[in-house]
Design a protein around this nucleic acid. Structure first.
Lengths: 169, 169
DNA sequence: CACGTATTGAGATTAGGTCGCAATAAGATA
DNA sequence: TATCTTATTGCGACCTAATCTCAATACGTG
């Protein structure tokens, strides 16, 4: 289990900030680290209830914010104008990543771009701005939902389908 | 007035899409192009009422979405986790720009980065993704709200304060 | 000018999240 | 381990932003 390190980090954060270590917090932590991808509060709440853990909606929201404050989870509204709820995601070994969101099927693809990260740092420096979090989301159509007509340049769609997650720019 | 071109574009969009050209739509257009920066639906609504134009809230929302669909305005939730409402902004002569949002004072600084734009294009290509819109927001502390202690490196804060809008990376 | 239909306005409704407060339980102290 | 203090929980009420409904209005075509 990779999240053992993160759990320690979470405990350290709680103690350091004078917060108590409650069963609800640990359960929420386990749940969000057990799941992959983005979850909304609703889904988390449902998941925990279905596991027998009775936990209130308010507590889910409160502790989710705590997880975010600890730096172990992120909270964003993905889907641009579309999605109305916050989505939470546990950090991936401290790795920064951003999102490609398909407007048609809702699929979310993560990507990593050291180049963009570097430019952002540069921009912040130039503006005397001290960055903390960031959100970069590109909305459009994924391969599968690509333009149905495909009149021109329908060729380069060949090497596709499954290659994911290792592209770096 | 620079927005005369945009207004024609808006009219063309309306007609092309089989939508009617109503007084409310024109008034809304004028208002959003008269203002600078980001406005929420509420503010727009208030602004129009205070100008004598009686327009309903529902209509504001509906037509704001129309403006977005026409490509003449953007709709985003800035302020990351903080802001709960959508903010609208008219396009600046077709220029793409992104935001630096101060978590302390709420100030929003716009920046332009051809470098990031290029990398985004590159990433989309690599994923066979056809981009449409995007959102890039960096949250943190602006110069004014910078770390209050400033123990180390308190020097480079000198050339500051007013230089804005011309930094390109 | 008249007609058909998209659009508007007003208010009800929904959705997601937050708040207040009494009951509970972490964890410090002895 | 028993006790005490106070953060945390759960529940339901509440809030806000945005959407929906539907009758009345007004574009714009013929």
């Amino acid at each position: 289990m990779a999240e053992i390190r993160e759990k320690e980090q979470f405990l350290a954060y709680l103690r350091g900030a004078g917060h108590r270590v409650t069963a609800e917090r640990l359960a929420l932590f386990d749940e969000i680290f057990a799941q992959h991808g983005h979850l909304d509060a609703e889904a988390l709440h449902a998941a925990m209830r279905s596991q027998g853990r009775k936990i209130s909606r308010a507590t889910v929201y409160r502790n989710l914010d705590l997880l975010v404050a600890s730096g172990l989870a992120t909270k964003q509204r993905l889907g641009g104008s579309g999605d109305r709820r916050f989505l939470y995601e546990h950090v991936h070994s401290g790795q920064r990543h951003d999102h490609l969101v398909c407007a048609a099927c809702g699929r979310v693809v993560e990507f990593v771009s050291p180049g963009i990260a570097a430019l952002q740092t540069e921009i912040c420096r130039a503006h005397g701005f001290v960055p903390n979090h960031h959100t970069l989301e590109i909305r459009g159509l994924c391969q599968a939902c690509a333009p149905p007509e495909g009149t021109m340049e329908s060729s380069r769609r060949s090497m596709a389908k499954s290659a994911e997650g290792d592209i770096r720019v």
